[in-house]
Amino acid sequence: MSAGQSAGLGLLAVILAALPFVLDNPYHFEIAILVCLNATVCVGLNLLIGYAGQISLGHAGFFALGGYASAILTLSYDWPPLGALAAGALGVAVLAHVVARPILQLKGHYLAMGTLGLGVIISIALNREVELTGGPDGTIVPPFSVLGWMPFESLEWYAITAGLMFVTVWLSLNLIGSPIGRALRALHGSEVAAETLGVNTASHKNLLFVASAVLAAVCGSLYAHFSGFITPTEGAFHHSIELVTMVVLGGMASVFGAVVGAALLTIAPQVLTVFHDYESIVFGAVLMGMMIVLPRGLVPGLVRLVQSVGFGR
């Protein structure tokens, strides 16, 4: 881990620890919890997209499958929430593993289309299997509990999600600096070269695809329990795009970028409601403008800016 990354991790820890003292109402906590969940998904997604160069426009599908697994297993089959979460994660792992090999041999726009198609199919199934999922109206989800302990207070939920996010960031940073992380970035740079140096590119891509899908599923489960409700929109194409946008806006191949992007795009709609009817116009325009001005994303773009100012002196 580089000095910059250690400093970033420390800063993140301080911010996460300080936030509960700043947030003064349940609504603010709710947003903070959503930021943590989205950030966790995005850190995983950024490993896949930013570091390994494999775009996915279907990860919301995995998020929703995790959420629905929790909803259905706890509600209709009386499973303990933790068991349902694990089962959902396992099911998504199996699904991701099965589709990974054929889909991840695709590149660029074709991979984008393949993952998009997968996500849309999942989303349509969630809409249509009304008996199982409740259809477009969604379904209620019983409260979460771990061995009898039931997080009810916002602070408890915040502790769970912030902890999950922090651990994910830490593990990701460890991975990136390792031989496996180098192999992932190498196959982004040149798949054939990586392959001739002993990197089993197919299995590396698959592993990462499965891991990021599982992370999304776990967050989907927690989201479903936290909000007490889940609808197929969580798995819709639009949500996949939102996740990718968080990654790209924050900065590709930047773990902290994914966190910053998730935070911004989760908070932005809450703030933008002041624009009423102009909300999506402002959102679309800001999105375009940011990507044109900072095509590498916020965090790498700002790091570069600071460096160039530093060298300029």
Binding site: R185, H188, V192
Partner: peptide, 23 residues
């Protein structure tokens, strides 16, 4: 050339040692 342009010079060579590393 099939250099990993998204990595540093040193990291490029370290990928060459992939199999010798603890993975």
């Amino acid at each position: 050339v099939q250099v990993f342009f998204n990595m540093t010079v040193l990291e490029n060579v370290m990928v060459g040692g992939h199999l010798a590393c603890d993975r």
